[in-house]
Design a protein around this nucleic acid. Sequence first.
RNA 1: UGGGGAGUGGUGCAAUGGCAGCACAGAGGCCUUUGGAGCCUUUGAUCUUGGUUCGAGUCCAGGCUCCCCAGCCA
Length: 558
Amino acid sequence: MSEVNELSDFIRDMIKEDLATGRFDRVQTRFPPEPNGYLHIGHVKAIAMDFGVAEQFNGVCSLRFDDTNPAKEEEEYVDAIMEDIRWLGYDWEDRLFFASDYFDQLYEFALEMIKAGKAYVDDLSADEIREYRGTLTEPGKDSPHRNRSVEENLELFERMKEGEFEKGARVLRAKIDMASPHINLRDPVMYRILHEEHHRTGDKWCIYPMYDWAHGQSDSMEGVTHSLCSIEYKNHRPLYDWFLDQLGIFHPQQIEFARFNMTYTVMSKRRLVRLVKEGYVHGWDDPRMITLAGMRRAGISPEAIIKFIEHVGVGLSLSTIQHSKFDHFVRDDLNQRTNRVNGVLKPLKVVLTNYPDDQVEMMEFPNHPDDPSRGVREVPFTRELYIEEGDFMEEPHKKFWRLAPGREVRLRYGYLITCTDVIKDGKGEIVEIHCTIDPDTRGGNAPDGRRVKGTLHWVSASHALDAEVRLYDRLFTHPFPKEAEGDFTDYINPDSLQVIENAKVEPSLKDAPVGNSYQFERVGYFCVDPDTTDEKLVFNRTIALRDSWAKIEKQFQK
RNA sequence: UGGGGAGUGGUGCAAUGGCAGCACAGAGGCCUUUGGAGCCUUUGAUCUUGGUUCGAGUCCAGGCUCCCCAGCCA
């Protein structure tokens, strides 16, 4: 919103400058994914930059699929990518483009280049081309086919297009400088032969443009003014500029910015694929994945993701964002967004021995304690309740201020209760706790003003709904899994998913819609998983509440 | 090693020759019917060596460290 419009970084500064000097009188950007995988949080930086900049400067942003490699790309990804971008809240309106839409024009441009003596057909094999390219420190050498006549090049290129040659037999290369210190300028390949069906052009073509040949011209044809991209393309900018200058067509300004990494996860497509293919997670939308599909299923909102991205900053150096920063924005968003409910993960039965057996009282709960406008709901209170197992300690240490024998605590918006007995089975396991209520404390306050430190959440045993709760945690135990010794999969967190089959939640959750998020008070944020059926509620833990108790507790463990 | 980039608290981002600031994390406190949230306080940084200047994170020169490029991938 308005906050977005106040964003400032070196890219926006450059654009302001371009507008001020009249170099451009409008702003047009584009998000150019390759449809060969799912979008993840790293892509959001580019998406938010492309669409955000356009919005900020009253320009437009289009979506263009750079689908120049039919061997890797699939329609399935096109649809998934569009869904993810829409979910984030961005709109390309009628500006949906494909690099494959430009194959004809690109072919014409190539002809132009050949006629101008700026491109040639090379018969060298891939290995030979690599050899001829030289190394970082030694110049390359000219291909023996570099000086073919225009006529011969035209004829050969035509025959490439007509499918006369096998895959890899020949390529079209730009004729620049095999001794250039910029490797990308050592006669880069423009077209290669690929007898592959393209997801949009079918079998029309058997030669396909390289990304480097397609990208700049695509931007140019669309009228992109500012072509924002990640930093690895900085080395390619001289090439894009060269192509544009040779062709003499509209010249967009490319501006690069750095990607980022996050601790306790992996961001590369290759590693994400392995997590899915090798079964470490249950799919691309597994809530532990930092894919948009995964984060969506985890219950993280697009607003939280974008706000986080706005705070990672924009620069030219590779940064590593701490996972705790991401967690902060997820919690901050959910704290404001969610209604509070009661959910008990590990139920411990409490019997209120002085409470009538057949009595049901409806207790009033605010839906959001810090926002009265969200209203209230009624929660049934009865003689038998469930509380959290961890909220009772038979032999409490001095910092534990919840329930213990002889202790009085508050049942939130219920009554003050005092523990009188601990009932155990033959093996010494606690089966239930007996307590008495103070009938004068309905709602949770004592008329005599005495204060109790502990406040517990609870559900009525006879009214509670059964639920499956999936407790997700960070996927890796190491902050830098890919840099740690061994394979990154060695550091998968074995406790990244813990399934609780028999959690108890309050009855108001009966028809909770899939995707809805709640705060289970004192526990964490949860959303309704699509696996939910009429018979069974399934919740995903998006993230736990900040837990300052955990720190204290550690001190008391030997 | 050739070329292209980057070095500011633990992490990330600002400061555009003039008091090194913000966020997250950390520490302490207040408040609390969530050990949540909120509020207050606080620890902690300019890669290095020279130079220019009244004054340098910023300008200049050298050094060091890290990232990217040698796909018929994008």
